[in-house]
């Protein structure tokens, strides 16, 4: 699929609600190898009336002979300096989706001084055996049918980077492991398009002449100037229990942003490790 279309941020439905968070987006440098060792940090925005930063997600990928280990640190602001944190270590199988095979998760709340609230701390383990997810939590096991193809929420941030380099011709179908313990069946990840995205533009106010009955008047007009294009690959995910998700990647395999219409992730930093 050749890149033929140039898209402005305000042109695309998935980017328009988060446009305020993308105004200063600069063309990224060369991406780390998506199948290599890397770390990336995303700023998390809530999209109420305008994008509002509300947390962060850090992913650290380490490939090894059984696939990769993908560690996550998710931090959500809860007001007055209180944060909700989810830390996870996930062993991912080889393959396009980065199917999770085993994981450990800890969830905690920290006050403004970083002190943990003891009675709302939790931890659990999970594993996927090819058909079922087993969650070991609260001293017991719970098994949930998950079908023969499984992906996990933030694991898809890794998967789309690898898929961007070699996009699939057909949709990938799977069940979604949501926040490490709930299985949502009936998901599909599709390549929507390639396009050239215009980023790093500036808005300037210019006066525009308008001919009226009694002469010429000049009206201020907000005009977008400058910017650079980035060749992008766009994926969409739909399925049970999620709002449609749109992933924007560079063609060399860097995830730039993710939007659901209610929340958005924008890449802040990344580095090869």
């Amino acid at each position: 699929m050749a890149v033929t279309e140039t898209t402005r941020i305000d042109d695309h439905f998935s980017l328009r609600p988060m446009a305020g968070a993308l105004r200063n987006l600069q063309p990224p440098g060369k991406a780390p190898r998506p199948d290599g060792a890397w770390s990336a940090e995303f700023v998390l925005y809530t999209l109420a009336n305008r994008p509002w930063p509300t947390g962060s997600l850090t992913l650290v990928r380490t490939p090894h002979e059984e696939g990769a280990e993908l560690n996550t640190d998710y931090s959500l602001a809860c007001g007055s300096g209180v944060t909700f944190r989810t830390g996870a270590e996930v062993l991912c199988a080889p393959g396009a989706l980065g199917t999770p095979s085993a994981w450990t998760v800890a969830t905690r709340q920290l006050d403004a001084q970083g002190k943990e609230t003891p009675d709302v701390f939790g931890e659990f383990r999970g594993a996927y055996d090819g058909t079922h997810v087993v969650i070991k939590q609260y001293g017991k096991e719970r098994s949930v049918s998950a079908g023969t193809s499984l992906a996990w929420s933030w694991g898809l941030f890794d998967a789309v980077q690898r898929l961007a380099v070699n996009p699939p011709s057909e949709p990938l179908t799977f069940a979604l492991l949501d926040h490490f313990d709930q299985v949502k069946p009936g998901h599909a990840l599709r390549l929507r398009k390639r396009c050239r995205l215009l980023v790093g533009t500036e808005f300037v106010v210019e006066e525009q002449a308008a001919e009226l009955e009694h002469g010429t008047v000049f009206r201020p007009r907000r005009v977008e100037r400058g910017g650079t294009t980035v060749d992008c690959v766009v994926f969409e995910q739909t399925g049970r229990g999620i709002l449609p998700i749109v992933y924007w990647c560079t063609t060399d395999g860097r995830l730039l942003m993710v939007s659901t219409g209610l929340e958005a992730y924008v890449r802040k930093t990344e580095e090869a490790r």
Binding site: A48, C78, F84, T86, L262, E263
Partner: peptide, 27 residues
């Protein structure tokens, strides 16, 4: 009050559910 969430949708509810579950389990 167990403060939870910040924002819309999943940004609120996942933390509410998780902290509620943890509170129940630890109580």
């Amino acid at each position: 009050v167990v403060p939870a969430g910040s924002g819309q949708g999943d940004l609120m509810d996942n933390s509410v559910a998780r902290l509620s579950a943890n509170f129940i389990a630890n109580h």
